[in-house]
Amino acid sequence: MLNTLKGLGVTLRGALRPKVTAEYPKEHLPLDERFMGFPALTWDSARVEPFCTGCMVCVRYCPTQCMTAQMTDNPKFTEGVSHRKKIIESFEINLGRCILCGICVDVCNFDAIEMSHEHERSERLRNANRVDLPTLLEMGKTYQAKVGWKQAKSNAPSPNERETAKAAAKSAKALAGDGPESGDQTGAVDGGDQV
């Protein structure tokens, strides 16, 4: 009898607690800043082009092989507007295969891919979630605007600046006698050989 009353007490107190759920399609619970939604490509508004150079690091390190990418010569480089010799031509992610692990973001040397807050992309067809470059950039722009995104990994130096940075890193390495510096990332194409 006593234990029944105890249980009833728990139920009563539960009834008095505030509501914790939301009626999903009508209400949305707030997303955390670190929330990992579908990957999206970021947009370099200073040079009016994507950050992505199509180096394929993310493609190679994706555990589910859900993406494909192709690079091309950057016309803006010959014009002298951009420091990127190569630029992404086409990029496709099959979001139905993506497991939202964030490895692509980890390995990217240019901060060109980010886990956006986009998470509602239900489609009627199995392959309808294959998104192309314009959609990915659109998702990226929305995400950048929402969180006030700043490039963290590299400062997108001009070719000259990169040479100076490399030389500085080399001398620092020689002085410290230590492993390669983390600042030496801009020159490397493959994320796998970095420290």
Partner: peptide, 20 residues
């Protein structure tokens, strides 16, 4: 979610530490 970005499949621990 606020630490790793995911509720269940976190991929947060790394060989040699944690992601962030």
């Amino acid at each position: 979610e606020s630490v790793s970005g995911a509720r269940m499949m976190h991929n947060y621990f790394r060989v040699g530490g944690v992601k962030q």
